[in-house]
Nucleic acid binder design. Structure first.
Ligand SMILES: NC(=O)c1ccc[n+]([C@@H]2O[C@H](COP(=O)([O-])OP(=O)(O)OC[C@H]3O[C@@H](n4cnc5c(N)ncnc54)[C@H](O)[C@@H]3O)[C@@H](O)[C@H]2O)c1
Ligand SMILES: NC(=O)c1ccc[n+]([C@@H]2O[C@H](COP(=O)([O-])OP(=O)(O)OC[C@H]3O[C@@H](n4cnc5c(N)ncnc54)[C@H](O)[C@@H]3O)[C@@H](O)[C@H]2O)c1
Lengths: 246, 246
DNA sequence: CGCGATTTGTGCACGTCTTCACAAGCGCCT
DNA sequence: AGGCGCTTGTGAAGACGTGCACAAATCGCG
């Protein structure tokens, strides 16, 4: 980086409180870089080039370099990036240095799978509570956690700060659950129900909708089939690897 | 639309083969509009204004109008959009007029939930086959479908054209499964495993990664907490409703 | 020590997406 | 028929994201 003043705002030594405000698109890619870096670390690499890491993360190398440059200069020219250092940096920026508590609401079909997902713990998240409204499921024990009634949410939230609420209820109940989560002080929600949630502006909502993904694929499938039926029938797909988020 | 020549390429009467090539961002929002429209139809609305539909879909009304304008002019000024007509149009563009066959590979924790998901059928998709590699799960019957060995995929694909393959195996197996799907002629893949897939350019891949969503939420949580700790402690969130996609 | 090979960090140009603002069109009421 | 209010469709401008291409920096080696 061009700035190289000694004890300034974002010095790399020790705790670095000043978060550079990253482009949203960059934030969305950092977790992918992190996963690729962990893969590198397990394979024994000490350093990676932007080219190598970009390939592992499925992105353009220039894009990766620009993304990483936003966090500061943690690479060495002619060598590459120090894997361990970069992991630490990204984990710090993403706020993964503290283990975040996750509450799951709606322990049905999908909820059961989520509750037992080990990908939570391995990425710095900790499922601390399961909630449902159905008396039949309440009391059930899943992976050491007992399903509690949704009305106990305020009590649980009072003793353990819940960082993220996950909604896996039917769409009809999702808004009510979101309201309860917000009332309990939750400011980040991951919503699996196919509906839009209305929340205060300080609350972040992200949605995962399987049907939408399928319909987007369906569109491209449709386009491909009508294209190949036309005269200049080159079966030109969009791009080999497509982004999820965006 | 401004063009109004009688028997031209994209006349609204009958089958409309010419697909206008929509911006990718628009395609990603169409399913959300479709869901909102179905909701309107069930509530008894005959027409909706762009304002009303936009609110139901959680987007800006100008954006919605521009998106819809790409499919042609299906609104009436001073009135709004005909709900039923617009549903038909969007479903046509997304290729949902034909029911698409879905094959699910990996019937574990997550796979069980997906196999029993009724949101598939209600949106024009039909799960036609379940595959796994574990002898213990093969033969199991889920919602009327029997789990078959992954090696039977070519045989199944030969008798039923598979439009979309869903991968719900561990990450280590995902690439191999993707290769098998591609070899069987599948050109659209939805991947739940946290890894990048390498596929030929004519194959579309979309990824759903729970951990990435959580980490993005974690970032904003982190940013919020450091912001409120600073002097001008306005707890200014990003936006009330955040996009899922890109 | 100097030089070449290598790789980062970034200025710049380009494309895409979003948002505003408003003319054009439609229906209804008088 | 004419006018008025409402809503769509769209040009234009700005914000944002992407990718090229290259200077600057670093390492290894002779
Ligand atoms: N099953 C899937 O594979 C899948 C995939 C994508 C999205 N989804 C969506 O995820 C959601 C859950 O799907 P599912 O298949 O698990 O449904 P499900 O009916 O099996 O489970 C829903 C659970 O939510 C509980 N619930 C209902 N109202 C509640 C409330 N007010 N408070 C707390 N809990 C409440 C129910 O008791 C039930 O246990 C749905 O919105 C569905 O559309 C499911
Ligand atoms: N469980 C969740 O809530 C969840 C959430 C998000 C993402 N994921 C991801 O989804 C994937 C599946 O998760 P899970 O919890 O269901 O795991 P799981 O271990 O319960 O199930 C995986 C299944 O895939 C089968 N399988 C393994 N190799 C195979 C192969 N080569 N061909 C066919 N089938 C094969 C296994 O036999 C098993 O039945 C993982 O990649 C996981 O990271 C899971």
């Amino acid at each position: 980086m061009s700035q190289h003043r000694p004890g300034s705002t974002s010095g790399p030594a020790g705790a670095v409180p000043a978060l550079p405000d990253l482009p949203e698109a960059t934030v969305a890619r950092l977790p992918e870089y992190l996963r690729a870096l962990h893969h590198c670390a397990e394979t024994g690499y000490e350093t990676v080039s932007s080219e190598g890491l970009a390939a592992a993360a499925g992105v353009n190398s220039a894009k990766l370099r620009k993304d990483l440059s936003h966090l500061g200069s943690y690479g060495t020219r002619g060598v590459g990036y120090d894997v361990a250092l970069l992991i630490d940096q990204i984990e710090y920026v993403l706020g993964l240095t503290q283990r975040r508590a996750v509450a799951l609401v709606g322990v049905g079909n999908l909820g059961h799978a989520l509750a037992g997902y080990d990908g939570f713990a391995s990425r710095g998240f900790h499922v601390v509570a399961l909630f449902d409204a159905d008396p039949a499921t309440i009391g059930e024990r899943i992976h050491g956690l007992q399903v509690r009634h949704i009305d106990e949410l305020p009590a649980v939230a009072a003793e353990t700060a819940i960082a993220i609420g996950v909604i896996a209820t039917p769409a009809a109940a999702a808004q009510a659950v979101a309201d309860q989560l917000v009332a309990a002080g939750v400011t980040s929600i991951l919503n699996f129900a196919p509906c839009v949630l209305s929340v205060p502006p300080n609350v972040d909502v992200r949605k995962v909708d399987l049907a939408i993904e399928l319909q987007i694929l369906s569109f491209h499938e449709h386009r491909k089939s009508t294209l190949t039926a036309l005269p200049g029938g080159r079966a030109a797909g969009t791009s080999g690897q497509e982004a999820v988020g965006s």
